[in-house]
Each structure stands twice: as C-alpha cells, then as structure tokens.
Design a protein around this nucleic acid. Structure first.
Lengths: 201, 201
DNA sequence: GGTACGCGGTGACATTTGTCAGACCTAGTC
DNA sequence: GACTAGGTCTGACAAATGTCACCGCGTACC
C-alpha cells in the first residue's frame, strides 16, 4: 500500500480528493492537513510515503512546507498539486525538493497514476508547464523589489509601504520603479500581475 | 435516486467531487461540465434533479448559468458551491433562483447532506454567510461605475479604460472617483479589492 | 585592488491620478 | 410640470506616482 497524506485548505476539496484516492486499491490516505504547519505534525506522526500538497494555504504555503518536510522526513516524497501552473512556482517547487508538479486542470484519473509513478521513483511534471518554465527565465526581481511589490498588492500607498518596511518613501519609489521596468509593465498594478503570472512573488 | 450534474472548471476537483458523491447510495452523478455553457447542454440532455455549480468558471459564470437553467429547466434545483463566501455573491445567487449556497471550506460530508435537504425542498445557506449578507447593504455601485472598476483591474491606465469603454478620459476619472468614495477606499486598487470582497463586481 | 551588484538614500521633474464644480441629456417618479 | 438619478462631458487643481541622476555602504568575485 502507498501511504499518502493530503494538505489542502479547502475542506470539501480535501475530502473529495481523499474519497477519489480511496477508490484505488493500492493507495491509502493516512492523514489530512489544512495548512503547511499542520502537515508537518501529521506527517511526523503517520510517516507517509508521499505527501500531496496544495500551494495556496494559510500560514506556511505548500512550497515552504515541502522544504521543511524534506528535512524532517527525507524518505517521504513530495508532490505539489495546485490551481495555477506558474513557471516560477514550478521552479521553486523543484528547488525545494518536490518529486511532482500537477495542476488541478488535469483529469482526475491522472492523480493516482502520478502517485504510482512517484512511488516508483519517477518525477512527474506537466509537459506544457515544463516547457513554459524553461522558456521563462529566472526571477529578475531582487528580494527588496519583491517585498515592495508584494506590499503594494492591497492598494497601499507609497507611504504605507515605506512605513511597513521601514524604508524612506524615495527608496520605495525607486524599487517600485525598477520592478515595473523589469516586468515591462506600465504601473505597479500591471507589474504585480505580470510578476504573479510568472510566479515571481 | 437523486440525479445530479456537476459544473466546475478544474477537472481534478470535479472528478474528486464526483467520486465523493458516488459513495452515497442515493445520489447519482449523471453529468459533468467544465463551464456554464457546457452545463446548459448537458442538463438539457440528462434532465437532472439538481445542478451543483461553481461560480468561478470561464465563459458564463455559475450565477449566470443558474439563471439560464431556471428558465430552461424549472424543475431542476440549483446549488452554488464556491470558494469564497462573498455577501454579494450570495445575494446574486439567491436572486437568480439558487436553492443552496455552500462554501468549499465546509466539511466534505455536508455536501451530500445539503443535496438531500435541497431535494426535500429546503433552502440551504451557510448561516455565517447569511448574517454577513444581511449586514452588508446592497451594491452601491452604479452599472457604469462597476464597468469602469472592472476594466481597471488588470492595471489599465485611464486612457486604456476610456478607449475600451468608448468614453472620455474625464468621464472615466469621474466614475473611478465615485467608485473609490463609495467603497471608502483611497485609490482604485483598494476600491477594486473592497468591491471584490463584497461581491459587488 | 578593481569591479559589479544589491541595499538605502536624496532631490528634481513630468505624468498620472483623484477630486471638485459645473454643464447637458434622458428616463423615471410624484 | 417639477424633481431626481444616472450617464456623459469639460476644465481646473492638488496630490500621488513613476523616472532619472546621483551619492554612500557593504559584500561578493576576479
């Protein structure tokens, strides 16, 4: 039996995935978690073969949880299952030691097949996504530019961001300006969208 | 047997929900659709008792599809199952004739229970959401203000929006300004976020 | 030692954005 | 007919935003 834990914040989706996998004779869902933090404690207790993680979760996200899990349970393989196939997500997921990257747009039957391939030692990646990740270069944003862009997401003004990051307003403007240019956008909103689409945040 | 069709754009979630409902002895998933448009053709063919719709779908969204379905198949009850419980969504869903409004945060076992209650003629609404909808007033945005706000979402400039909606730039600025005030925001980004949270878009 | 890069800052400048007052037209309501 | 609300427009103004040039500091790397 392949022992699997699920981490996914939406309870109904989590339960539905569990029932989907429950139909497979060789797969056993031995634990569930609603956040990255919860996953780590559950995995420590049940010692799964495979952890199936969503990226978008409250608290620690799926990619961060993947990295922690690789440290604490090296024998457990990590699979990322997420809504959006952003190239940057894939890159970060692979760097944090994931064995698979699936998107929720794929047919449901592929999930069990992917789990078996990962258990056999293969790496499973959506081919279209792999191509996109190779064609898109690495993240051009410096850490600070990234911080400033993220802080501007909820409609904050320059002075809000400056206060929040303990910077001068001029510095914030400079970072924002260079982030806008690096994303070849025309304003912060567009820059935020482009960077988000690439998975640079 | 209760005959159900599912409409949900993410194939894996759709398949998982189907397998979840497949476990219930009195529920039969007789059709699936990946968009609002597809739902209407599928429902016309299989004549279900209940349609379970996600809101966020490409093309016709779940609420619009609910309205159309009520016209073409008055005997079929509509249930909305969605990620976010925005008050405005609930209001619009109810106005378009939905019998239930569930959020994906709820436990998986509640889904089958809700389906049975709807089949029995009840209306099922998340109590916390109902309270939020009652406390939040109706949508204060005029149709044009709403259009302009939506068009500004992807980082468009004033002149982009003006060209797109065939308006003068001054007019766009005026609408945007009044939308910002009605949402008590400080700029369009914040206004967009507030309006989105309320389900006013 | 020189060079490059990221971080943090200043000051000046042009453009964009948000606000306000006012105008005209239409459709509905009392 | 008067009144209101929404839609469309203009012009003017202040504030916010984006760009540019330039400075200093530290830490890499060759």
């Amino acid at each position: 039996m392949i022992r699997v834990v699920l981490a996914e914040d939406q309870a109904m989706v989590r339960g539905a995935l569990a029932s989907l996998l429950g139909l497979e004779p060789d797969i056993d869902v031995v634990g569930e978690a609603a956040s990255g933090d919860e996953l780590l404690t559950v995995a420590a207790r049940v010692q799964p073969d495979i952890a199936l993680l969503d990226i978008e979760m409250p608290g620690m996200d799926g990619i961060a949880a993947a990295g922690k899990l690789r440290e604490s349970l090296p024998g457990c393989r990590v699979m990322i299952l997420t809504t959006f196939g952003r190239p940057g997500y894939l890159r970060r997921a692979m760097e944090s030691g994931a064995s698979a990257f699936l998107v929720k747009d794929s047919p449901a039957r592929e999930l069990a097949a992917a789990i078996r391939r990962v258990q056999a030692g293969e790496r499973v990646i959506d081919p279209a996504l792999a191509a996109a990740a190779l064609s898109a270069g690495p993240n051009p944003l410096s850490p600070r530019e990234r911080d400033v862009l993220i802080a501007s997401a909820n409609g904050s003004t320059i002075s809000d961001i400056a206060a929040h990051l303990h910077l001068s307003e001029g510095t914030v403007r400079n970072y924002l300006s260079s982030a806008i240019q690096k994303t070849s956008a025309r304003n912060r909103t567009e820059a935020l969208q482009r960077a988000g689409d690439q998975g640079w945040l």
